[in-house]
Nucleic acid binder design. Structure first.
Lengths: 217, 217
DNA sequence: AGTTGGTATCTGGTATACCAGATACCAATA
DNA sequence: TATTGGTATCTGGTATACCAGATACCAACT
């Protein structure tokens, strides 16, 4: 009966992890604000044990910082953080391109284009657009066939979404992003490593600069 | 009284994390073998709650895999894993070099050389040599001034130590490693990015090949 | 003998109780 | 009035009890 798509019931820990992370990315809890295990467990309707696991994962991934006997503080965002994330993102997304280009075939290129087209369809909703843009980058990461690289890029794009969320709500260069994606796809079609990495680096540079200029101290 | 070096008492969770990880890296528990929360908590003398936190961190970092209601399995090592780790290591150690070269001054270069000399002094003990080699790479990562990059490289070198531990015990090319390090240091002294990254990539390539050839299926 | 089904006993997931450190507040003191 | 010190009450850290799913085993049945 393997054709039946079984909906995996996520554990309490995963549920808490997703909920809290979503709240942080969407600035429903602001950087620097405090959280407390007991109140969190109450509002999520779970006990502290699975919650602690979710909180530890969030801490290891750089979203929060647990201070024993004080509470949990949502990480603040500063210029240094943004720069670190983009340094990592550039190096590792370029690596993904290097790995996936030799693996490309016409079918996967078609999938990539389809994905980008879906992205154009939802320009109206900035939040959905943000997630779809991430999905585009993650799809490329997935094609690299390096699972650890995929997870790393996932975490990095999540952080970028967090950093840029406010600027994004202000209504931004969504057309510009589409154009930059087209340049990447053209590079992939040509199986041209240099052309593609240049397009990716350009894309990331623009994103980096946009976020820096929207950083309010 | 800040001149007093306060010994931070590590939490039960950190203690468990370090002990279990050390056991895995040094193959005191073999890849594929099973662990169980209750027996582990008993042998470590702690309860399951902090142990669960340690186990989750180990799982997120790729050392073990927790299977609900079955147990915990120590990750197996295959060719794909080794390749993934080295792909990441090459890209990110090169990034570290790119970042640190503009920050170099004579004093830090002196420190790097001193570190490498200490490494030569302990060629007799392969395990100590392994950790000292990692410390050399980690020191370079630290100089990049990107903390997330440092943590990433830390995890990657730990995994490489795990993969290579058996081959290392067999007594390996310790002189060769010293020579490769000298090439890296010379590149740094010359502030030559290309020369240094070539030396690093060469160093990692040799390490990669050595581990692959010692991989027994 | 082969099959079945109940049960004892594993497992990790979860809830909860208790601990010690940190803190805020307020009464007692100089 | 300013300061001190005890206490009530926060916090995260830890230990433990209980739950349901998974499994192995053995007796009962065909």
């Amino acid at each position: 009966m393997s054709f039946l798509k079984v909906e995996q019931p996520q554990s309490f820990k995963d549920h808490a992890y997703n909920e809290i992370k979503k709240g942080i990315i969407q600035h429903k809890v602001e950087p620097g604000s405090m959280l407390y295990e007991r109140s969190l467990s109450e509002s999520l309707g779970i006990s502290r044990t699975p919650l602690k696991l979710a909180l530890q994962q969030l801490e290891l991934e750089g979203w929060i910082q647990s201070i024993p006997r004080k509470g949990i503080v949502v990480q603040t965002i500063n210029r240094q953080d943004v720069d670190e994330i983009f340094q990592l993102r550039k190096a590792n997304e370029v690596l993904a391109i290097e790995l996936l280009i030799p693996l490309l075939n016409d079918e996967t290129i078609e999938k990539i284009e389809k994905m980008d087209n879906q992205l154009s369809d939802i320009k109206k909703d900035p939040i959905k657009f943000m997630y779809a843009d991430s999905a585009f980058h993650l799809f490329l990461a997935e094609l690299s066939q390096n699972h650890r690289l995929y997870q790393l890029i996932q975490n990095l794009t999540d952080h970028v979404n967090w950093y840029g969320f406010v600027a994004l709500k202000a209504g931004k260069n969504l057309d510009e992003v589409s154009y930059e994606h087209r340049l990447i796809i053209e590079g992939l079609k040509a199986r041209n490593l240099r052309q593609t990495t240049d397009a990716v680096l350009n894309h990331l540079d623009i994103s980096h600069r946009t976020i820096i200029t929207n950083l309010k101290e």
